[in-house]
Design a protein around this nucleic acid. Sequence first.
DNA 1: GAGCTTCTTTATCGATCGATCGAATTCGTC
DNA 2: GACGAATTCGATCGATCGATAAAGAAGCTC
Lengths: 215, 215
Amino acid sequence: MTTSDALAAPRRRQARADSTRLALLDAAVQEFAAHGFDGASTRAIAARAATHQPQINYHFESKEALWRAAVDHLFSKLDALLGEVMPQGPDDRPVASREVFAATIRAFVRAVARLPELNRIMVQEATADSPRLAWIVERHTRPRFALLTGAWRTLRETGSVPGIDETVLYYSMVGAASLAYVNAAEARLLGVDPISDAFVEAHGEALVTMILGPD
Amino acid sequence: MTTSDALAAPRRRQARADSTRLALLDAAVQEFAAHGFDGASTRAIAARAATHQPQINYHFESKEALWRAAVDHLFSKLDALLGEVMPQGPDDRPVASREVFAATIRAFVRAVARLPELNRIMVQEATADSPRLAWIVERHTRPRFALLTGAWRTLRETGSVPGIDETVLYYSMVGAASLAYVNAAEARLLGVDPISDAFVEAHGEALVTMILGPD
DNA sequence: GAGCTTCTTTATCGATCGATCGAATTCGTC
DNA sequence: GACGAATTCGATCGATCGATAAAGAAGCTC
C-alpha cells in the first residue's frame, strides 16, 4: 500500500490557475473598495481581471469567499508595508518608547496612503452590522486594536504624552491617518493631491506632533 | 383674465404627501448610510418608510434624486447642530480665535457623533468618482472645506498653534472626529461605546488638545 | 355630494444580479 | 501523442433591481 493509495488523487494545480486567481483578487480589491460588497458585481470583477464571471465560483466558493480572500490579501500587503515598526517585548507587551511610537505613526500614514483600498473596505463594512464585519473584526481588527491601544497605555504611563484615553486615541489616529486617502477622489476635486510625497510626509509629521505633543 | 388663467392650475399638496415624503427621506438616509447608493434598494427604503416602492418615483424623480434630497436633508440637520460656532467677520473672513476654534472642534465632534449617517454617506461616495461625488462636493463639501481651511490659516498666522498645512489639518480633523461614529458597529464589537456622552466629551477634549496644542 | 386632483396601490416591464451546469479547451503525465 | 485531470468558456437559471403604467382610494373645492 503506497501513500497515494490511501489519499485522494493529488490535484495538479496549474500555473494559469494561480494567475487567474491573483488577477481576480486584485480586481476584487478595486471593485469592493470602490462600490462596497453589495455594489460590486462579480461580472465587473471578472471583466477587470480579464476573465469570465464563472471563474469566481470556480476559484472561490462564492462572492463572499472572494471578498474574504481579497481582504486577507490586502492585510498581508499592509503587514508587509508596516514591517516591524512596533516590536513587542518578550512578555508580549509592546515596546512603546516615544521614538518607536513616532516611527509607527509615520509608517502607518505611509502605509494607508499606499493602500487606500483597505480602509475603504473597512469603512464600508464597519458601517453596518453583518457577518462580514464580525469576521473582519475578529480576524484582523481586534489584534491590531489591542496592539495599538496597549502600546499607547504603556506609553501614557510614562507621562510624557497627552493623557488621552486609548480607545479615543485609536479612532482619532486611524481616522486622521486614513481619511485623506480613503476620500482621495473627493480631495482631488478640492484641489488636494493626497498621494503626493509632499502631502504624505507633511501628514505624517503633523500626526506625530498632534498625537505625541510638541516635546 | 384672472391670474389663474395665465398660470398652470395650482397644485393642492396634501398633508399625507409630506408625511410620506419625510418618511422616505429618513428611511433613505438610513439605507444609503448602511449599504451605499448601489447597495441600498428602493424596496428596502420604502419598506422602512412603511410605504410602497413606487412612491419613491412619485415623490422624487428617481433613486438618485431621492439620494440628493436625503443628503440635503442630512446637511440641514448638521447645520442645525453646528449652529453659529464659527462666525464669519464682516469681510467674510472667519473669526478664528483659539477659543472659537476650540469651541468649533467640540461642537463638530458632538455633531458628527449624533449624525453618523452623514459621514457614512460621505465616505461611501468620496471613495470613487461619480456624478454624485461631484454634486456633493460642489454643493456641500467645498464651502465647508474653504471655511475650515481659511479659519485655520488665519489662526496659524497668529503663531499660537502648530504650523500644520491647512489641507492636512482638514482631513486629519474630520477623519479623527468622525471615524469612531462612522464605524460605530465595529467599535461596539471592540468593546467601545462611541455614542456614550463620556466617549464623545473625552473625544472632543482630546481633539482640542491634539489640534491646538497644550497651551 | 359632484367632480376633479392628489396620492396610494397593484401589477409588470426589461435589465442585471450571483450561481450553476455542461461542453470545450488546455495542461501535465505516462 | 494519448489519456485524464484541471481550467476555461458559453448558456441559462431564479431572484431582485429601478422604473413605469394603470387602476383604485382619498382629499379638496365648489
